[in-house]
Structures are given as C-alpha cells and as structure tokens.
Simulated assay, not measured.
Amino acid sequence: MFTPNGIHHVAIICSDYERSKKFYTQVLGMTVAAEHYRQERQSWKLDLSLNGKYVIELFSFPDPPPRVSRPEARGLRHLAFEVGDLSLALRHLQQHQVEAEPVRIDEYTGKRFTFFADPDNLPIEFYEK
C-alpha cells in the first residue's frame, strides 16, 4: 500500500510580495532558503524554512484573483504552526501589530489555540503543544 512520507511544503500566492516576505520572515521567524525572480512569469518564488525544514513556497504573480477563505469555504482551511507557549506567541504577534482571535480550547485535546491572518487574510493557527 502506498503512503506518502510526509508533507513537503505549502504553496502560498500573495498579493504584495515584500509585505508577505516581511510577515513570514520577521513575524513568523522563517528563514529564506532560496529566492528567485522568474522574468517570464513576472513572479517571485521564495522558499522558506522553519527550524531548518523547508515548509513554504511564497509566490507573487501579477494581479492574482482573491480566494474565498472564510467562513468555512471549501478547500484548504488554514495553516497551523505548533508553538510551545501560546501566551509568548500572542505577545510576539502583538509586538508586530498582528491581531489574533480570542484563545480557544480544543475540546478533544484540551490544548489552547488561536487564529490570525497573514497580509492576504489567509487564516493561520498557532496551536500550543
């Protein structure tokens, strides 16, 4: 029986490349693994790592159409990051003027989590380990 080895990466198309690059590197602390400008597409491709592991491809394209992401639209629902201390993570978001929803408790695990949005309003979750 075939089973994938794991998730290789998540691809995100942004509306403002520099703004999103700043958000993912400075707010979420990801590291730039590679950055390429593709002239034929008028598109940037930014490979981002988290703790040494490649996780996100950030793309820019001229005038990408908006995608419905809330409420509960069909498709990828959100991107979740595990954090060790949710209170510390929330203070970090506040320092970067990123608003988060009120903290919730997972009814099955008892763990705390919250949602916030990237610069294109894509839903991101911090889930406390």
Results as ranks from 00 to 15, higher is better:
Phe2Val: 09
Phe2Tyr: 11
Thr3Ile: 13
Thr3Arg: 04
Gly6Phe: 12
Ile7Thr: 05
Ile7His: 09
His9Ile: 06
Val10Gly: 01
Ala11Gly: 13
Ile12Val: 03
Ile12Asp: 04
Cys14Asp: 01
Glu18Asn: 06
Lys21Glu: 05
Thr25Glu: 00
Gln26Ser: 08
Val27Pro: 03
Thr31Cys: 07
Arg38Pro: 03
Gln39Pro: 06
Gln39Ile: 03
Gln39His: 13
Arg41Gly: 07
Gln42Glu: 05
Ser43Trp: 09
Ser43Ile: 01
Ser43Met: 10
Lys45Arg: 13
Asp47Gln: 13
Ser49Cys: 14
Ser49Phe: 09
Leu58Gln: 00
Phe59Ala: 01
Phe61Lys: 04
Phe61Pro: 05
Pro62Met: 11
Asp63Pro: 11
Pro65Met: 11
Pro66Met: 03
Arg67Pro: 10
Ser69Ile: 08
Glu72Phe: 14
Gly75Ala: 06
Gly75Lys: 11
Gly75Cys: 11
Arg77Ser: 14
Arg77Val: 13
Glu82Ala: 08
Gly84His: 09
Gly84Lys: 10
Gly84Phe: 12
Gly84Thr: 13
Ser87Gly: 15
Ser87Asn: 15
Leu88Ser: 09
Ala89Phe: 02
Leu90Asp: 03
His96Lys: 02
Val98Leu: 04
Pro102Ile: 13
Asp106Thr: 08
Tyr108Ser: 14
Tyr108Gln: 13
Thr109Ala: 12
Thr109Trp: 08
Gly110Ser: 09
Thr114Phe: 10
Phe116Asn: 02
Asp118Ala: 01
Pro119Thr: 06
Pro119Met: 04
Asp120Gly: 03
Asn121Phe: 08
Leu122Cys: 07
Pro123Lys: 01
Pro123Asn: 05
Ile124Glu: 05
Phe126Asn: 01
Phe126Glu: 05
Tyr127Ser: 11
Glu128Thr: 06
